[in-house]
Amino acid sequence: MGGSISGINVEFEQDKKIVQKWFFGEEVDSLVTIKMHPHTKGTSLEIKQTNIPDEAFDNISEGWDEDYFGALNELFI
Results as ranks from 00 to 15, higher is better:
40 T>D: 11
26 E>H: 07
31 L>Y: 03
59 N>M: 13
64 W>N: 11
10 V>L: 09
71 A>G: 03
13 E>L: 04
53 P>F: 02
64 W>V: 07
75 L>W: 11
55 E>V: 15
41 K>Q: 15
30 S>Y: 04
45 L>F: 10
19 V>R: 03
32 V>M: 08
57 F>Y: 09
40 T>Q: 12
5 I>P: 02
66 E>K: 15
73 N>G: 07
61 S>N: 14
68 Y>F: 12
65 D>M: 07
58 D>N: 13
32 V>P: 00
15 D>L: 00
25 G>F: 06
75 L>M: 14
19 V>C: 11
75 L>K: 14
4 S>W: 02
38 P>K: 11
77 I>G: 13
47 I>Q: 05
75 L>I: 09
50 T>Y: 00
31 L>A: 03
24 F>M: 10
70 G>K: 01
58 D>Q: 14
27 E>F: 07
48 K>H: 11
50 T>K: 09
11 E>T: 07
2 G>L: 04
6 S>E: 11
73 N>P: 01
5 I>C: 04
60 I>W: 00
77 I>M: 10
17 K>A: 02
32 V>W: 00
44 S>D: 12
62 E>F: 05
19 V>I: 14
16 K>V: 03
37 H>Q: 08
40 T>K: 14
17 K>N: 03
11 E>R: 10
43 T>L: 10
42 G>L: 08
74 E>Q: 12
3 G>C: 05
25 G>D: 13
4 S>F: 01
21 K>I: 14
35 K>V: 07
47 I>P: 03
32 V>A: 06
24 F>T: 04
13 E>F: 03
62 E>I: 00
6 S>F: 04
17 K>Q: 12
75 L>D: 08
40 T>V: 12
